[in-house]
Computed example of a mutant assay.
Amino acid sequence: MNSTVPTGGSATPTLDIDRSDPRYRAWLAEAVRKVQADANRSADTHLLRFPLPREWGVDLYLKDESTHPTGSLKHRLARSLFLYGLCNGWIRPDAPVIDASSGSTAVSEAYFAGLIGVPFIAVMPRTTSREKCRLIEYHAGQCHLVDDPRGMYEEAAALAERTGGHYMDQFTYAERATDWRGNNNIAESIYTQLRLERHPVPAWIVATAGTGGTSATIARYVRYMQHDTHVCVADPENSCFFDGWKDHDPAAYSETGSRIEGIGRPRMEPSFVTGAIDRMMKVPDAASVAAARALEQAIGRKAGGSTGTGLWSALKIVAEMAGEGRKGSVVTLICDPGERYLDKYYSDAWLAEQGLDITPYAAAITAFLATGRWSC
């Protein structure tokens, strides 16, 4: 899985290209067309119902982002990042695109890089699941693994400097690249799909945060459209987002990387817009895994750990609403498929190695679905 990225030599600066050259303009137009055509070919993702007793008066939905061509919520982000980079003149013919990622964004970015014919290099923690690495390489991307996740940013920037490539920097540009006012973004899609349901305007939408781009897009859209919806972000262990939001501390930091791939960060990322969020919950990693496994029992679908983090918080909100006699709907996300994590969240050996006991959390979910009482 180690990359064969050049480690020396002078970089070719991004600005060393004549952007008035007809050949470049033709390449750019074709690249943008190909990325936009992918959106046209991709049907919208499904909105699934999680089975709850109807008499509770609360409906729980899961926006299934695992059905994108590259299998995750990050397909939307990668498409937006590529369009943003192309239209800004940052992505050039033959020059590599490089990004720091915990896996799913890199899979999607490798796909779009291949679509427009440029090389792609993913700088990722060495603990990234083997299946994600395989998928990146399937799309002709390279995996450049680092031991300390906190050093991903600097390594990605250094690789871009050495190779003359473009550092995509998803953690900075995620919230800027996506059109949060509409244009079939994830928020607009959720409201459109809920239109004929008994509670068409959700009381809560629960998201998780890696870059923070998804929560920013949803929260901004809610306010822009003046919906009576609140946004909750669920945060795993070993992530600074919850503390940074709670304490209004942009310098919040975590010494340890998140075990839940794709979400939770050691630093407050530029795309994590704290002022747009109504509530955050800190979720134990064992609870995230228990919820992911409970999802499979409920709907027959495996999902990743980040889905479990969001589902745990969504179930807690459902319990609060039902306990208070409030009716309405709650929406959370299926971020990616569980088949990418068979050696982690679906492995009892991995749980034991990590010292995670999911038993009490699994029991709490089972009891809640049977009795309506939340015990955690």
Rank of each mutant, 00 (worst) to 15 (best):
S102T: 10
S102G: 02
G103S: 04
A106S: 11
V107H: 01
S108A: 15
A110P: 00
A110C: 05
Y111S: 10
F112Q: 04
F112H: 05
A113E: 05
G114P: 04
G117T: 13
P119G: 08
F120M: 05
I121D: 09
A122N: 01
V123G: 00
P125I: 12
R126N: 12
R126Q: 12
T128R: 09
S129H: 05
S129T: 15
R130P: 01
R130E: 09
E131Q: 14
E131I: 14
K132A: 09
I136K: 09
I136P: 04
I136H: 01
E137F: 13
H139V: 01
G141L: 11
C143L: 08
C143R: 06
H144A: 02
H144Y: 14
L145P: 12
L145V: 14
D147Y: 03
D147E: 15
P149H: 06
M152K: 08
A156T: 05
A156F: 02
L159N: 06
A160K: 08
A160F: 06
T163C: 07
T163V: 03
G165L: 03
Y167L: 12
Y167A: 11
F171M: 07
A174D: 06
E175L: 03
R176M: 11
A177W: 00
T178L: 03
D179Y: 07
W180R: 03
R181V: 13
N183R: 14
N183T: 11
N183Q: 13
N184I: 10
N185D: 13
N185T: 02
E188P: 02
E188N: 08
E188T: 08
Q193G: 11
Q193H: 10
L194E: 05
R195T: 15
R195V: 15
L196I: 13
L196A: 15
L196Y: 00
E197M: 10
R198H: 14
R198G: 08
H199E: 07
H199C: 10
H199I: 11
H199S: 12
P202V: 06
V206C: 05
A209S: 12
A209M: 06
G210P: 07
T211R: 08
G212V: 08
G212P: 07
T214S: 07
T217C: 13
I218K: 00
A219P: 06
R220K: 14
V222L: 06
M225F: 00
M225Y: 00
H227Q: 14
T229W: 12
